[in-house]
């Protein structure tokens, strides 16, 4: 870790003022990813602005029938919050599928959105990486790429976004509330994270001097028919190779409404509305689910070590939709897949 200065923000306006004055500074909340990256010299901010004392720690119902989650709500508090457990169990399940109990006790809602890829080369400052050092090249494309993306990649970067929580937030049509020097705005969740294209150093569309203040969920929670199904190299405490958040609303044996988002396959949580359109109005069966998987994976492209993810994703989508339709969501304790 290099030398840095430390300051505490008193309120949101103070936090925005401080980061506007020093754009290379970083906000710190949970710090579970940022401190790790600073120890690795991947992140080298001259100033840390501690935002942990800001009043962004509540989970409240909105007038629209949804829920507004303060950016500093810890992951564990969110997963176990009665409103989330009852109305958005897909989100609760996704949160509990990620990290460890210790990390979830500290990691914040806003920080989860801003965590960085776990690509080995991004972490290894001895190797080229366009995300860490723009223009230096991508080591993963011809290197070890077992954990990397199969959708939305570019010649500059094939990293994945590591979050589980964000996959559910994308599926649930969340929005991200941010504040900056010119005021506040809301960003649709699926527009928050970016594809790598030629600027993989930018993970999100957050402006450099903006701060996340809240994440808002609309009323629709898919609480009856949902799952969060995650495949990884060990049963717990590992990042997804492929994960699927699925939600269904069923009527007369047909799919009236649906949400489908994947993790571990792209630079952002992967939500494909054409795959959802392929499900809507269709009967609940394997043929329908397989067709939707084929639509979602139509442009999937594997690299030397990760082509298995295409088949894994296809099976995971079908299995997740089957679990959701049956009302038997994946347990995050008993990992037997039914």
């Amino acid at each position: 870790m290099i030398n840095f200065q430390y300051a505490r923000a008193n309120d949101v306006a103070d936090a925005v003022r401080r980061i506007t004055a020093e754009p290379a500074a970083k906000f710190i909340a949970g710090g579970t990813n940022l401190i790790d990256l600073m120890k690795e010299n991947v992140e080298r901010p001259p100033l840390l602005i501690d935002i942990t004392r800001l009043p962004l720690k509540s989970v409240e119902e909105t007038a629209a029938g949804g829920v507004r989650i303060g950016a500093l709500v810890p992951n564990s508090d969110l997963a176990y919050h009665p409103l989330i457990e009852q109305r958005y169990p897909m989100l609760a399940s996704a949160i509990l599928a990620g990290a460890s109990a210790q990390l979830r006790n500290v990691a914040s809602t806003g920080g989860n959105l801003l965590q960085r890829t776990r690509c080995y080369y991004f972490y290894d400052t001895a190797t080229p990486c366009n995300k860490r050092d723009p223009g230096s090249g991508c080591s993963a494309i011809t290197g070890l790429n077992r954990t990397h993306a199969i959708l939305g990649t570019s010649d500059a970067c094939i990293a994945t976004h590591p979050s589980d929580m964000c996959v559910a937030l994308a599926a649930l049509d969340a929005s991200v509330h941010v504040a900056g020097p010119t005021g506040a705005r809301a960003i649709a969740f699926t527009d928050f994270h970016r594809l790598p294209e030629n600027t993989p150093q930018r993970d999100t569309n957050l402006e450099p001097s903006e701060i996340i203040t809240a994440v808002e969920l609309p009323a629709r929670g898919f609480a009856a028919n949902y799952t969060y199904l995650k495949f990884r190299d060990r049963l717990s405490y590992a990042f997804a190779l492929v994960s699927v958040a699925a939600g269904l609303e069923l009527k007369d044996g047909k799919i009236a409404e649906t949400r489908l988002a994947l993790g571990g396959v792209a630079h952002k949580p992967w939500r494909d509305r054409s795959a959802e359109a392929a499900l809507r109005g269709q009967p609940v069966n394997q043929t329908t689910f397989t067709r939707a998987a084929d639509v979602l994976l139509r442009d999937a492209k594997g690299f030397e070590h990760n082509a298995f993810k295409i088949d894994l994703a296809r099976s995971a989508i079908v299995r997740a939709l089957t679990q959701a339709a049956a009302g038997t969501p994946q347990s995050q304790s008993n990992k037997k897949i039914r």
Binding site: I2, Q5, T125
Partner: peptide, 21 residues
């Protein structure tokens, strides 16, 4: 292996911070 691509950092040296109570 030589470090061929060091991360960007601000050019001005960062003043040694005071110790914090």
């Amino acid at each position: 292996m030589a470090q061929t691509n060091s991360p960007q950092r601000s050019k001005a040296p960062i003043a040694a911070p005071d110790k914090i109570p």
